[in-house]
Amino acid sequence: MSDKRTVRFIISRQDTPDSAPYQEEFELDYRPNMNVISSLMEIRRNPVNAKGEATTPIAWDMNCLEEVCGACSMVINGRPRQSCSALVDQLEQPIRLEPMRTFPVVRDLQVDRSRMFDSLKRVKAWVPIDGTYDLGPGPRMPEKKRQWAYELSKCMTCGVCLEACPNVNSKSDFIGPQSLSQVRLFNAHPTGAMNKGERLETIMGDGGLANCGNSQNCVQSCPKGIPLTTSIAALNRDTSIQAFKNFFGSDQV
């Protein structure tokens, strides 16, 4: 019986994007209010594994440390989530850390989330207002709708929904729930709606909306509680109408 409490970590490591992953164990002295990031910082301060061997510090991404930037997502005890808000007191030990392998692993727990930013560019997840002259104020958004849209705007591109989705994998080119929900957000904006048809056409392309298989893991996993499956179903309706317009002919905006 030791009177000193410790915290055990089993961390999946990988030295280069192409090298084989391996596991390394770490044991840290317990301190109150530890979270996964403070633990990783502790290991970085003194990179010695559980066997007492000197090792390299662990690589991971982080930025805001308050669950709004999405950078520090990793798979903690089998579930993808943000490591900044993963409190050690609430986790079963040993705490297993793995990178979100849906994305290319850069090193250790660090992944390359570029594909999500590429998807946002592809669906034009913005309100285009740039031009050579002042376009003046746009149409107003009803306050109630603004509050509703705010929920969708909480997306921090963390990648948890893509990691949880059974249809986002190496065999499929599905863009995933994250960028789809942003299409709904920007199509709901009074100025953004001016490019509604264009965004719908994009997600009707290969790898788009139709790849959703309704497992609904995304909405269960989203750390921001974004109604992702409602967004997808709403877009299913919008694209049904868009396809009808395209085929039978009507205004296509």
Binding site: R79, P166, N167, S172, G213, S215, N217
Partner: peptide
Amino acid sequence: FTAKNNIGQYGYFRN
């Protein structure tokens, strides 16, 4: 066969 099932980690009804 393009799905990668993951009910082990995500045992939700819809999954």
